[in-house]
Design a binder for these strands. Structure first.
Length: 683
RNA sequence: GCGGGCGUGGUGGAACUGGUAGACGCGCCAGACUCAAAAUCUGGUACCGCAAGGUGUGUCGGUUCGAUUCCGACCGCCCGCACCA
């Protein structure tokens, strides 16, 4: 009762319970019908992280190949799928999944086969188990005729590594060019015929040992294919089998349908009714939504909805006879797949107000953890497309911009009794002890804060120690938002000092003119401060827009340093710089900003004040400092006018003392001048 | 195994399309103020060297006047997928 993508390392993604395989009758959403468009539309999501798009692409897992038919010795036909039709003459067996209908049919009368299938089911889904799992086979006694040679008979075997969920659940095995087939063939003594030979090898002597050859090469031992490239041979086999009417080029997807049935009472009920006469019947739209019972009995195990007969028993919407509700509920991911459309008009009578949704959607900037890359984000894309097809919404893709933020991490601690929270621990000389009884505590790796590992810092405690603004500032400084951040008390303290510093700069500033006084700097110090302020406005504006909070923070440190370094600057310039500092820091430290704003003599709120603008003319200095390299090594620098021409710059560079020393009288062979950036002298 | 990403000081991290590597913060060192401490302020802080100078962005090569940035091989770490034919 979990979808494939909800299984992490053999366990349920949320509960951590070990997953086991059982056969159940369940409800699915046919997400596979959208596989191709979900795949191709990824290219249009240019404001999504490349990583997420690659993960979805791999998850959908498109592969193109050939589906073709074997005729079995009992006259039945068997479809197989392959991406390597070129290796058909290297075939040495036909493999069936234990879950294949033919296997199941034969098992009805074959007790040994039943045992074999049970043996296969025992293999867990955890990574390690699959890795160790031995190849197992069971010969069902039938043979399959080679499609190009009716006299060539291949044994048909049930094999544990053939999956029913991919392709047709049946394969032809070519041991020389597939590792799994090779392992299987070696174990059961099947032939290994190399049919693709690398260009640097001799077809007559080339053999395959314990490693299958999967590289490129020329065809051999393959009759009419001999000498062809892999690509040409693929095309030739496909074309011949298509002409014979027993093969077709097909596309396969790894993506499976979305299993949405949950055997719990707290989800959205699946609006289906089971009638003895009519079978499975959907409820009429007018009967929706199906409400859960008010009182739910959790005293026994199992799904309480199954036992609530008053709720469960209904009248069939088709025939009016006795029927019962489906007691499965929907996966909670169903709800999160379309809430954003509902949010556009939460009071609408219909589930979605199309006009409102078309006005607001798609979401401009979606922010979430990477853990939803192929769960929520794929489901929501599918839902949106399905809603579009039903005419409920005009858009195809729900989220135009996507950003995956990092996690807050902290060291983990444990003693003999289990995990210990950081505030119960005291660290001395690299070792950790419990505060209460001095018992030693083992310091574990730093991991994402979680209740289960108790490596959490309670926000209340930090806020009371440092204030909310300090914490906000700390969260945004240093580490880029897409990366995990390591919580440290030392870092938070540093941020607290900055809060104090800003407050001091503002509250202790003397002789400021009244708000609104224009800055008209006359001396160099004032001009420089004004330039710093305008540079900061430009940079912070840009960095915040690009979600580069750590760089915005660094810019504000620089501005505060510039202000502190220029107490003698013109008072109106100092006011302008302080106001810039306050306004620019407001998104990150709103409380402090409001307090400072008031202290600067304003009656309004920062929140109501326009974002500061900058004068582009102030961003550039009249002069620039250019580094001078000799043979690529920095030997000095020169200060030149911003618009100085190359010859002037070259002359200045050649006259520089360090450069002269490095040249030691030699004549430069070549001088490269990159205006405003660098001079490189090749000697 | 497949796919992707990342390796920069003691530390978190800067460095736009190749152009002064280490911005900014933390930490550390020294000094000022103080009876003292905290706070604050000033200066310093990649490495080797007294200095001149040399060496440095995981390692080794390549392209270039110039490489953290581009290319190739390798090493290490992280993430996702995985018996997918």
């Amino acid at each position: 009762m979990l979808a494939n993508e909800q299984v992490i390392d053999g366990r349920g993604w949320r509960s951590g319970a070990v997953v086991e395989r059982r056969k159940l009758s369940q409800w699915f959403f046919k997400i596979t019908a959208f596989a191709e468009e979900l795949l191709t539309a990824l290219d249009t999501l240019d404001q999504w992280p490349e990583k997420v798009r690659i993960m979805q692409r791999n998850w959908i897992g498109k592969s193109e190949g050939l589906k073709f038919q074997f005729t079995l010795s009992d006259g039945e036909k068997l479809d197989v799928f392959t991406t390597r039709p070129d290796t058909l003459f290297g075939a040495s067996f036909v493999g069936l999944s234990p879950d294949h209908p033919l296997t199941q049919e034969l098992a009805k009368t074959d007790l040994k086969l039943q045992d074999f299938i049970a043996e296969c089911r025992k293999t867990g889904t955890a990574e390690a188990e699959i890795e160790k799992a031995e190849k197992l086979g069971y010969d069902i006694g039938l043979t399959a005729a080679h499609p190009f040679d009716p006299n060539w008979k291949l044994p048909v075997m049930v094999a544990n590594f053939v999956l029913m969920g991919y392709g047709t659940g049946a394969i032809f095995g070519c041991p020389a060019h597939d590792q799994r087939d090779l392992d299987f063939a070696r174990k059961y003594g099947l032939s290994v015929i190399p049919v693709v030979v690398p260009s640097d090898a001799d077809a007559k002597t080339f053999t395959v040992g314990t490693e299958a050859y999967v590289g490129p090469g020329k065809l051999a031992n393959s009759r009419f294919l001999d000498g062809m490239t892999v690509e040409a041979a693929k095309a030739e086999v496909a074309s011949r089998l298509e002409k014979a009417g027993i093969g077709e080029l097909t596309v396969n997807y790894r993506l499976r349908d979305w299993l949405v049935s949950r055997q719990r009472p707290w989800g959205c009920p699946i609006p289906m009714v089971h009638c003895a006469k009519c079978g499975v019947v959907a409820l009429k739209e007018s009967d929706l939504p199906v409400l859960l019972p008010e009182k739910i009995d959790f005293s026994k195990s199992g799904n309480p909805l199954d036992r609530d007969l008053a709720w469960k028993n209904v009248i069939c919407p088709e025939c009016g006879g006795p029927a019962h509700r489906d007691t499965d509920t929907l996966d909670t991911f169903a709800d999160s797949s379309w809430y954003f459309a509902r949010f556009c008009d939460p009071h609408a009578d219909a589930p979605v107000n199309k006009d409102a949704a078309d006005y607001w959607m798609p979401v401009d900037q979606y922010i979430g953890g990477i853990e939803h890359a192929i769960l929520h984000l794929l489901y929501a894309r599918f839902f949106t497309r399905a809603m579009n097809r039903l005419g409920l919404i005009g858009i195809q893709e729900p989220f135009a911009g996507m950003f995956t933020q990092g996690m807050v991490c902290h060291e983990t601690y444990r003693d003999a009794d289990g995990w210990v929270t950081p505030d119960e621990v005291v660290k001395e000389g690299g070792k950790a002890y419990r505060k209460d009884n001095r018992a030693p505590v083992e310091i574990g790796s730093s991991e994402k804060m979680s209740k289960s590992k108790k490596n959490v810092i309670a926000p209340e405690a930090i806020i009371s120690d440092y204030g909310a603004d300090t914490i906000r500032w700390f969260m945004l400084s240093d580490t880029p938002p897409e990366r995990d951040i390591e919580w440290t008390d030392a870092g938070a303290e540093g941020c607290w000092r900055f809060v104090q510093r800003v407050w001091r700069l503002v509250s202790e500033a003397e002789g400021l003119p009244t708000p609104g006084t224009k800055a008209a700097p006359s001396d160099d110090v004032s001009k420089a401060l004004r330039q710093s302020a305008h540079k900061a406005i430009a940079a912070v504006t840009d960095d915040l827009a690009g979600l580069r909070f750590n760089r915005a923070v660094a810019q504000l440190y620089m501005l505060s340093n510039a202000i502190a370094d220029a107490p003698k600057a013109d008072a109106a310039v100092r006011r302008e710089a302080l106001e810039a500092l306050v306004l620019l820091s407001a998104p990150m430290m709103p409380h402090l900003a409001e307090e400072c704003w008031r202290s600067l003599g304003h009656q309004s709120f920062v929140a109501q004040t326009p974002w500061p603008s900058f004068d582009p003319a102030l961003l550039k200095s009249d002069t620039v400092t250019i580094a001078v390299q000799v043979n690529g090594k920095r030997r000095g620098e020169v200060v030149v006018a911003r618009d100085a021409d190359s010859k002037t710059v070259e002359a200045a560079a050649l006259a520089e003392e360090g450069v002269k020393r490095a040249l030691d009288g030699a004549t430069p062979k070549k001088v490269i001048v990159v205006p405003g950036r660098i001079v490189n002298i090749v000697a």
